[in-house]
Design a protein around this nucleic acid. Sequence first.
DNA 1: CGTCGTGGTATCCATGACGATACAACGACG
DNA 2: CGTCGTTGTATCGTCATGGATACCACGACG
Lengths: 237, 237
Amino acid sequence: MTIEKEYTTKLAVDDVTIDRRDIEMLDAIDRYGSMHRAAEELGRSYARLQNRVVEIEEAVGPITERQRGGSGGGGTELTATARELRRQFDRHEAALDGVARVTESVFAGTVRDRTGELGTVETGIGPILALVPDDASEVQVTVRSDAVVLTEPEEALEADSTSLRNQFRGTVDRLEPGESITRVTVDLEGDEGDPTLQALVTKASSERLELAPGREIAASFKATAARGIRIDSDSRA
Amino acid sequence: MTIEKEYTTKLAVDDVTIDRRDIEMLDAIDRYGSMHRAAEELGRSYARLQNRVVEIEEAVGPITERQRGGSGGGGTELTATARELRRQFDRHEAALDGVARVTESVFAGTVRDRTGELGTVETGIGPILALVPDDASEVQVTVRSDAVVLTEPEEALEADSTSLRNQFRGTVDRLEPGESITRVTVDLEGDEGDPTLQALVTKASSERLELAPGREIAASFKATAARGIRIDSDSRA
DNA sequence: CGTCGTGGTATCCATGACGATACAACGACG
DNA sequence: CGTCGTTGTATCGTCATGGATACCACGACG
């Protein structure tokens, strides 16, 4: 059973919510210069497509300049608003794609202190400062591997001048080099469960830090990049 | 026109894709111990709900132990698989919620060098090492504010022993303190556009670094936390 | 002044998702 | 050995989405 993380991107603008299909519609209109051709090229009915454009415009304002009559019969162009929408959508989707692709490390623990949205979670690898939901006591803390910073252990000590609030020491367990990015698995000193933290690092950084299995290293991440998720109390196993 | 980032969480397991509704179904079954009560409590029809359970189990394997007959008429319990599914879903949703909530800073630029998935992007604030799509030349680079690390400027110089590949200097422009987290806006030295970088920092870090408007500071982030998004060449404005 | 490919609109129909309903099968317990 | 609240299953109706089709309006250009 392999579980894959998926998602669908949406933008809520006032009253409508714009999804991938809408953006593809805008793209096609932009590319072909007419809603008829866009509909044909996308394999969807002109009537619905045109309706959708109007529907969006009623909520967002003009996203097209439509003209009928004329030499070529007319045509429609996108407005700056439409292009901005598309860019925003692309950014959002890229961000979501990021979380779906990136691996994360999980540590179960219990919330000790809490001030506002922040809390200290006692885990098998020690206390972690993380964002925690305010009704939770038992949580699992997740850390995205692209948010983990690796540092020389000696330098790490004086790093109190940083906003990196979570620092751990460990030894490199495994390197999985990609073309330009290496996935590093760090064994942390911990008693329970799987005291392992994954980090994504550029190949250049990997070489500069002379990463290799057995190498001692400091791994740190920001409190704002670690989130706790409530575990239902009635969940056994 | 206020644009809000939205998303719908999904897990793809083999042949089925599990969405929020399914997880709520599992929750209700777990809470009430029977599919009939779960259906009633959720306001949906028993027939469909039961069908859905079977449908999921055909793809994922047993997620329930169903028993009919008996004193209470029977009942159904969740299996460990179902609980694991729920936890995974919760984690994924928390991660997606993170990207939807966090602000990001955007810098437009052009890709210079590219090795694999990594590239150097020339922007208004200088070169940024980021993940770039392989067909792009003009990109917008986005940096999540929870991935930006603030450091004492003096210490930053010797930070070559880190996997933080992008380092910039600037001055604190604005602080927006929350209950336990402060949003920091840093003005970078840059010519074009909006040379501003946002960072989320714990209040403790903010005080330790003595952040205040005008304060000089170093802001850094990992290359793997910066992603470039292609800008269509035919996009003007 | 007609042509032609647009935009604009209304109507009908196919499909899928889902609730509503009805009914059979089950089995511990009184 | 019947009761009762389950799990199963089949059928029908409803609703929303969206394609298919048809028809009108438009206006520069030949």
